[in-house]
Design a protein around this nucleic acid. Structure first.
Lengths: 202, 202
DNA sequence: AACTATGTGTACGCTGTGTCCATATAACCA
DNA sequence: TGGTTATATGGACACAGCGTACACATAGTT
């Protein structure tokens, strides 16, 4: 189980001495992302990242303040953010599509495990938590709120809705199943979430 | 910052040799719970638990398979489960009360930090994850589903609701704010969650 | 009184962290 | 072209925590 080739496809290490900073940074980030996808946060150590990048630990400590920060950077390097949020004018369809896409990302790729472990790590790493909010959850929440607000303006939803709370009831519900895992995270579940909210329970 | 007295209120250690198993187990669990509330998962180590319990690390390794398992046991020892779920016949009031109580538990006591860190740890500790599901989230989810089912039988809610998904949209939404923390977890938020779902968004 | 189960103290090796040095060399500037 | 500076490198260090092993002490049981 060693699919990670040290220094993949780069010019071989030249021994001691300085290398271009950007190149080193790029190799470290790639190595971090690959290691994250391959082994998850459990096997993610500064030492391993340094080894796979053919770099020295000192360099990593110099550029990243914490293990979590490096992991998050590595994650974004490998998994493109893809923050697009289609707005076709049909809020129910848009929400459903977005949620279903999220469910597939989380279930059918390694990203789900990585996300959950990043969130897990963030519970004891304030810097990582802040970085995660700022770079990941924040922008995504903003896009969803924006879409909901437009739907309210179009009259597809009540105008007095607290759209932030709706985000928690859609994506938060998915994260709940992802993180606790007592029930499966399925496409049907995603559709049911939208249906419950839009139609109401009674 | 050393509020934890070693071996609080127990007969003093008697040096080497065997002590009653039940007594040792009880002292370890108490120490684990107190340490957890005082320092959170970050400062929770087997060594510290052993020190505060006046016990040897070996003993802990003998009885608990992992650090997470010990933490969970310690948590339940100090924070009583309190799984009661009032059923007054008014489903909206019952859900709201239950959610508001949860919000207060999580915000106004140290339990919130501990819960979030236990969930966080569970992301890389399968044994802890299983124990958490079995002993904490599972029973709580079952009680909520049961209450929802009764309300459906009484005709207060539609009969074709998937009550499991509703649980995720109420408690899961709270956990979302607890774990991500980009928006505050307030009593109003809890009320809004119930309102959104019951009335529907349009 | 003997036996067994179990807690205790101590020591060891392992992994990972975070920090320090001296050295080498790329990038920059005169 | 040559000197200066920034930065990457290897290596070493101390520290913490985990998990294990062994010998010894003693409570519970027969």
């Amino acid at each position: 189980m060693a699919p990670l080739t040290p220094n993949p496809g780069m010019s071989p290490r030249r021994g001691r001495g300085r290398r271009p900073a950007d190149q080193v940074r790029a190799e470290i980030l790639t190595a971090a992302g690959e290691l994250l996808l391959a082994e998850g946060m459990a096997g993610f150590t500064i030492e391993k990242v340094a080894a796979h990048a053919g770099a020295s630990r000192m360099t990593i400590y110099k550029w990243w303040p914490s293990k979590g920060a490096l992991a998050l950077d590595g994650y974004f390097t490998v998994v493109a953010p893809t923050l697009a949020f289609a707005d076709t004018g049909d809020i129910v369809a848009d929400l459903t599509n977005q949620l279903v896409a999220f469910v597939h990302l989380v279930r059918d790729t390694t990203a789900g495990r990585v996300i959950s472990q990043l969130i897990g790590q963030a519970q004891t790493d304030p810097e990582l938590a802040a970085a995660y909010r700022e770079r990941y959850s924040g922008p995504r929440r903003a896009l969803a709120v924006e879409t909901l607000t437009r739907a309210m303006a179009r009259g597809q939803l009540r105008a007095d809705i607290d759209s932030e709370s709706v985000v928690d009831q859609l994506w938060g519900a998915c994260y709940h199943r992802l993180l606790i895992g007592d029930l499966p995270l399925t496409e049907d579940f995603a559709r049911t979430l939208v249906d419950n909210l839009v139609r109401g329970l009674r």
